[in-house]
């Protein structure tokens, strides 16, 4: 079976800093693959290259066996790649419902329609409400996005990503800044989609990572120092030294 996502010796430098230093990785369809690593390891930069926001210096990205290294972000979204951002990226002046409905609109019919109220399209709104319900945000649908709490913004990010009907989810720290209850809700949701949805999860929350991941890769200074099942990673001495030990100490 071809991998859903295949990363082949990806390189990216910012000046003298090799932020992505020869990363190769396969993600199988249905897999939930977590990437962990210390701050500044290059996780977000990797996600940015996978989603088409940043161009790598060299290397390739294959999606279902197809080379998409030079495809733009919108093109990848239409192939089924969705991304949530570490730093909340939403339309603050739009309502919650509009934010999600717009993601539905992007894949349902042309947006070069100049007449007819978009807000009144039942198909878009009904689908959007469905995704909001999934993340537990349906009762906030009519509120302007900027008035939501930080945790709710994280839930929105997730709903928007789901609304693009992805075949591959790239999630950059979806748990960051969520309160306890929101985190539990998110964890339950992730459990639900696990197995059905192919996911690359970048996350600092070790509870979530070890609870969810099929496989884990550890990224340090732009390199993957280990890939394995949660059990293997936990037992890996190098990982403990480079990362987990420090994380345990911090918590």
């Amino acid at each position: 079976m071809t991998a859903r996502l295949e990363i082949r010796s990806l390189h990216k430098r910012f000046g003298a800093l090799a932020v992505t230093d020869g990363i190769s990785l396969d993600i199988a369809p249905g897999e939930l693959h977590a990437i962990i690593g210390p701050n500044g390891a290059g996780k977000t930069t990797l996600v940015a290259q996978l989603s088409g926001q940043l161009a790598p210096d060299s290397g390739q990205v294959l999606y279902d066996g197809r080379d998409i290294t030079h495809m733009d972000m919108a093109g990848r979204v239409h192939l089924g790649m969705a991304r949530s951002f570490q730093i909340t990226t939403i339309l603050h002046g739009f309502t919650v419902l509009q934010n999600v409905a717009l993601a539905v609109q992007a894949r349902k019919g042309s947006s070069f329609r100049f007449f007819g109220r978009a807000d009144a399209e039942p198909a878009l709104n009904a689908a959007a409400i469905g995704y909001l319900r999934q993340v537990g945000l349906a009762e906030r649908a009519g509120d302007v996005a900027r008035n939501l709490s930080h945790g709710e913004h994280r839930q929105m990010e997730f709903a928007i990503a789901l609304a693009t009907a992805p075949r591959l989810l790239l999630l950059d720290e979806p748990f960051a800044g969520t309160g306890r209850q929101e985190a539990e809700q998110l964890l339950a949701l992730m459990r639900q989609i696990k197995g059905k949805q192919t996911t690359l999860l970048v996350e600092h929350d070790m509870n979530a990572v070890f609870a969810l991941a099929d496989r884990i890769s550890v990224l340090v200074y732009g390199r993957i120092i280990a890939t394995g099942t949660p059990g293997e990673i936990r037992a890996n001495a190098e990982v403990r030294a480079a990362y987990l030990g420090e994380e345990d100490a911090a918590c």
Binding site: S51, D72, A74, G93, A106, S111, A118
Partner: peptide, 28 residues
């Protein structure tokens, strides 16, 4: 008034709010 409330207008207003977000849901 019709244009700004249409599908097109919503996309246009979306690019005003956050162009990166618009690309990330599949708009150019």
């Amino acid at each position: 008034a019709a244009v700004v409330n249409s599908r097109f207008g919503r996309v246009l207003a979306g690019t005003r709010e956050d162009a990166l977000r618009m690309q990330a849901i599949g708009f150019r």
